[in-house]
Design a protein around this nucleic acid. Sequence first.
DNA 1: AAAAATCCCATGATATACCATAAGAGAAGG
DNA 2: CCTTCTCTTATGGTATATCATGGGATTTTT
Lengths: 147, 147
Amino acid sequence: MDTIINKVDTKGRVSLPSDYRAIVKELSTEIVCYRSLTSPCIEGCAEELLEKIASDMETSLDFFSQTQDELTNLIFGDARRFSFDSTGRILLTEKLLKHAQITDTAVFVGKGRKFQIWNPENWEKEEARIRAEIFKNRPSLSNKGGM
Amino acid sequence: MDTIINKVDTKGRVSLPSDYRAIVKELSTEIVCYRSLTSPCIEGCAEELLEKIASDMETSLDFFSQTQDELTNLIFGDARRFSFDSTGRILLTEKLLKHAQITDTAVFVGKGRKFQIWNPENWEKEEARIRAEIFKNRPSLSNKGGM
DNA sequence: AAAAATCCCATGATATACCATAAGAGAAGG
DNA sequence: CCTTCTCTTATGGTATATCATGGGATTTTT
């Protein structure tokens, strides 16, 4: 999955890149999107994955179980199903677009079983940051011969 | 899922968001609402789920060290059925509206199998609080959840 | 009879489905 | 190796269906 740039029209519609669509389509005809907890971007995945993420988080919580309750609030309260039409587009909400500072252009970034949608400039910075981070840890990588 | 803002008219009527309605409608034409034990908000769910919800709550509130009976009594004693009309609206009671401090606007927050109804300002604060809380504990989450 | 609740209809707004064009990638053939 | 054709994908526009909401009418309750 590579990064793909698509336009957001005046109504907030975006084409989900066909590669991404194909993967989801095996499961269903809709995806789930929510505001990233850690970055100014939108995250998307198949609904099944969201439920898995939610349950994974629950089991990984060692502090008060009250937080579990709050987690479901945060995840299920923020997430929403988006079904894409015959042309493969979804209509993003104001809330999501605002959080990611997206106006007329969106960058899709694959992240394994999920993906992120970024404002182009923000993603450029983020990518640079990640590259720098990786470079900093280069020695530990080259030891294993991975790259 | 999702968070939706709807108006409460002069008669106290609120439209139950269509997504929520659709899910409940598979089962019946009415929902159950009660005052949240932990927050200034209304909680709602399908009647079939109430018993399950109650027991879930017991396990998640174990630090209150209350007996199961006391909690279930509390919820069941407070819960009431609300049937929605052909346009999908329910008429909330004074007791519920007062508890949630709702006057003319209500925020529906998805919570998986149930949902909450908040006063807009209160929810805004609560959401910010939860996000900060979760973010603080992010390191322990990112290991497993990947959000 | 008055008040409250339920039902029904009308309307504006919005999301969804649909069609049509344009741009790009890959395949086939010269 | 280049050209042409075809198929997929992205994007713009339009129509249709759905939903939220206001108002009124009818029914029920006390």
